[in-house]
């Protein structure tokens, strides 16, 4: 068994933390785990990509294009930008709440309609799941918990190899004590949103 998750988003959204939660959970399940992260300059509000691979025999920290089993998209435009990491059978989880790039915010570039972005994915892939992770996180208490919402949603995905309780435990281990309740709440709300 080999499983690859490509986690994509914008610097500051908690992509690295999410990959650590999934990676540690995979390790606790007894899998071999390899990951590759982006640090440094790209974190200044740029696009970020974190690759997580686990299974019985994985060693390469990178995956071939097209070979992702799951694309965890923290942001709609970034999900679309990274679509070639997946294939027609890849599960695509997309947070519908955009983070506007500075050139869009300043009015120099346009951000496409969300419908055109979801449409672009579903035209080529029948496994698109969407949720308003940021809005759900705000409802749970704070926008920064959107990554916990996303992990909760992954826990609800049929066929994801790591069980819900292992993901939740890993999340609780990774976040500071004082944010634990917020994250657990966000995780459960993400789980419910994806289950319904």
């Amino acid at each position: 068994m080999k499983y690859t998750v490509q986690i994509v988003g914008v610097g500051g959204q908690g992509v690295l933390l999410a990959s650590m939660v999934l990676g540690n959970a995979a390790m606790e399940q007894g899998y071999k785990v390899v990951m590759s992260e982006v640090h440094g300059m790209a974190q200044r509000g740029g696009s970020v990509l974190s690759t997580l691979r686990f299974g019985d025999d994985v060693i390469s920290p990178l995956e071939a294009a097209g070979s992702a089993d799951l694309i965890m998209g923290f942001e709609p435009a970034e999900t679309c930008r990274n679509l070639p990491l997946g294939n027609k059978d890849t599960v695509v989880l997309m947070n519908l709440d955009p983070v506007l790039p500075s050139m869009v915010a300043a009015g120099f570039e346009e951000y496409p309609d969300i419908e055109s972005l979801t449409g672009a994915v579903s035209a080529v892939n029948k496994n698109l799941y969407t949720l308003d992770a940021t809005k759900i996180a705000i409802e749970a208490g704070k926008a920064v918990a959107a990554n916990a919402v996303m992990i909760g949603a992954v826990a609800a995905m049929k066929g994801f190899p790591i069980p819900k309780d292992a993901l939740l435990k890993s999340l609780m281990d990774q976040v500071p004590e004082k944010f634990r309740d917020l994250n657990v709440k966000a995780f459960e709300m993400g789980y419910s949103a994806m289950s319904s």
Binding site: R44, S47, S67, E78, R81, L83, K88, P112
Partner: peptide, 18 residues
Amino acid sequence: FKQPLPKVTVQLPSRPPT
């Protein structure tokens, strides 16, 4: 390797580090 999905045709905004 599996056949990657094509690049989307929607015009995506640039997102360089800033």
